[in-house]
């Protein structure tokens, strides 16, 4: 392929040809393969470090004692659940507007992984709620909106595979993912907008995180580990999906020749 294609004159009408040129599945596969062992290694090291630090070495909380250690799995899972859905919405956007094959593959592979992290968030949250609040589950705005996130993931997983024509599935699922993205700000701000049993946000990007530094470090390491694990899983699943499609095409072509 001609590499000197960035010249404006070489870009055909539509303006998004760079996307097709630099994000085609074959190129993705070539880029992903050498990265995957590194991604997997860093994910494992950071996740294991964060969880062991939180479980054994972080101090107990003044108010919640050892039960606060559930934070080191619950909070990273919740963050990844939301970031994963944001990634799903972005992929759906590219899938819907540009019909990009890589975006379709991404949307298909993000769904199940994101749903898994949301499930971990819900279960660890229930196991935290029972000893501290006195209830596994309450229907407050934060818990309900995260349960809705879980159902949005499940709906997306089913919808993207529900049509004989994969294009139709990708289109319908992309619409669902984008409509559902309205739930993300609801989750984040639910604890500010309404009275909830769930406590307010501890970490704020604009400074003043209400957590002592020896508890913040394991939380950040564990979160970084969860984020990297999510990325690794999605990249590996996307690569596998591309290779499966290649194999199918080769077998089809061979069948047609004979």
């Amino acid at each position: 392929m001609n590499e000197n294609v960035l010249a404006p004159s070489a870009v055909p009408a539509g303006g998004a040809s760079w996307l097709h040129r630099y994000a085609n599945p074959g190129r993705f596969l070539r880029l992903a393969r050498p990265c995957l062992p590194w991604l997997a290694g860093f994910s494992l090291i950071l996740t294991v470090t964060g969880l062991i630090w939180g479980y054994y070495f972080a101090p107990a909380d003044w108010e919640q004692g050892d039960a606060a250690r559930i934070m080191y799995v619950h909070v990273p899972a919740a963050w990844v659940a939301m970031a994963g859905y944001a990634a799903l919405a972005v992929a759906s956007f590219f899938s819907l507007i540009w019909r990009h094959p890589l975006a379709d593959i991404a949307a298909e592979e993000i769904g199940p992984v994101g749903a898994g992290f949301t499930f971990v968030c819900l279960v660890s949250g229930a196991l935290w709620g029972k000893p501290m609040w006195g209830a596994y589950w309450v229907w407050d705005a934060r818990l309900t909106s995260v349960l809705v996130l879980f159902f949005l993931y499940l709906g997306h997983i089913a919808l993207i595979r529900a049509f004989d024509n994969p294009q139709h599935g990708h289109r319908a699922a992309a619409i669902l993912a984008l409509v559902g993205a309205v739930n993300l700000p609801i989750i984040v701000f639910s604890v500010q907008w309404w009275n909830t049993l769930h406590q307010g946000n501890t970490i704020s990007i604009s400074g003043g995180s209400k957590i002592y530094i020896t508890m913040l470090y394991p939380l950040l390491i564990s979160s970084l580990g969860f984020y990297l694990t999510f990325i690794t899983l999605v990249v590996a699943r996307m690569s596998a999906s591309i290779m499966e499609k290649k194999t199918r095409n080769l077998l089809l072509a061979a069948a047609e020749r004979s």
Binding site: P59, D61, W62, W133, A135, L197, Q199, M215
Partner: peptide, 17 residues
């Protein structure tokens, strides 16, 4: 009929408190 505890969002070790 039921009382639930609503804890805060501040996390710190006992000795800091």
């Amino acid at each position: 009929d039921e009382v639930l505890a609503k804890h805060g969002a501040s996390y710190m070790p006992k000795d800091v408190e």
